[in-house]
């Protein structure tokens, strides 16, 4: 087979595919962050902890109750989303209207507490979650090997991201959400329960994170810090994409995953920092982010 600048195509395509998988996690998580920030003006530092809780809920369900992967994919986001609504009602709602730093501190502290609790009970060495039997194995496509599970993760992530985009941009509830981002006082004066909308939005954003966590469980090791490590990269993704656009967060997430994968092929030493280098460049050239609006 041919080689591209000394790189065999299998290695190149394999790494690009891995990059897309990482990118789909970036996209799903940054989407939730963007939706939450848009309405609550909260930089949700607990997002990684909710992602981790999603993965843990799947592991816990399987280990203690024999709840399989497919049920976990539905149940874990519901349970973690409900916990998110409780957190919003009991804690975050009390600091609404204060400086954005308070929300950051509150959610950061919350993330530390949740991670600490999980570490206390399950240690930090990592738990194994098996690939569901339906999606075990894969197929050699000739130019690369495609593991079914990873193909599924990429496909469902894109579907979930596009569905979220559709709901926000094309439905009645989405237009109410956009209006509430612009002028919550007026939306309330039209007879709409804005505090409930805020709680629901937080719950859905957090449920998206938990969904990503369940998807991640068979790929990455399930351990308390898994979300915190990922979240740092996701924040860089959000800064690069800008907070303004839903479609922007999806494209930025996938695109940066690809760039990271490419870097692993051509200059592996830089793969851990390439996203942050891009972030610095974007901040210098277009501080509001690639898809953000200058405000």
């Amino acid at each position: 087979m041919f080689e591209l600048i000394g790189i065999p195509p299998q290695a190149l395509l394999g790494q690009l595919f891995l990059g897309l998988i990482n990118g789909s996690f970036y996209a799903t998580l940054s989407l939730g962050l963007a939706v939450i920030f848009g309405l609550l003006h909260i930089i949700n530092f607990a997002h990684g902890a909710f992602y981790m809780l999603g993965a843990f809920a799947a592991w816990f369900g399987l280990t203690h109750f024999g709840i399989g992967y497919w049920s976990a994919l539905v149940l874990a986001p519901l349970i973690v989303g409900a916990a998110g609504i409780a957190v919003e009602r009991l804690l975050i709602a009390r600091i609404s209207g204060l400086n954005v730093l308070y929300g950051l501190l509150l959610t950061f502290g919350l993330a530390l507490v949740v991670q600490g609790l999980v570490r206390n009970f399950y240690g930090s060495s990592g738990l194994r979650y098996p690939v569901p039997a339906d999606l075990a194995g894969g197929k050699n496509l000739g130019f690369m090997f495609l593991p079914w599970y990873r193909g599924w993760v990429l496909a469902i992530s894109v579907v979930v991201c596009l569905t979220t985009w559709f709901v926000i941009e094309r439905t009645r509830i989405g237009s109410t959400l956009r209006a509430a981002q612009e002028n919550p006082g007026l939306v309330e004066a039209f007879g709409i329960n804005v505090p409930r909308l805020v709680s629901l939005t937080y719950g859905v954003g957090v449920a998206l994170a938990a969904f990503a966590g369940v998807l991640a469980a068979p790929i990455y090791s399930v351990q308390p810090e898994m979300g915190a490590d990922l979240l740092i990269v996701v924040f860089a993704v959000v800064v690069i994409g800008g907070m303004g656009s839903i479609l922007g967060s999806i494209l930025t997430g996938l695109g940066l995953g690809l760039i990271e994968g490419l870097t692993k092929v051509f200059y592996p030493e830089a793969s851990n920092v390439v996203i942050f280098v891009i972030m610095v460049v974007v901040l210098m050239i277009k501080p509001e982010g690639l898809f953000g609006s200058a405000q």
Partner: peptide
């Protein structure tokens, strides 16, 4: 405000 709007006051 939302309850007042529901009573029939349009703004």
């Amino acid at each position: 405000g939302r309850r007042i709007a529901r009573l029939g006051m349009g703004y």
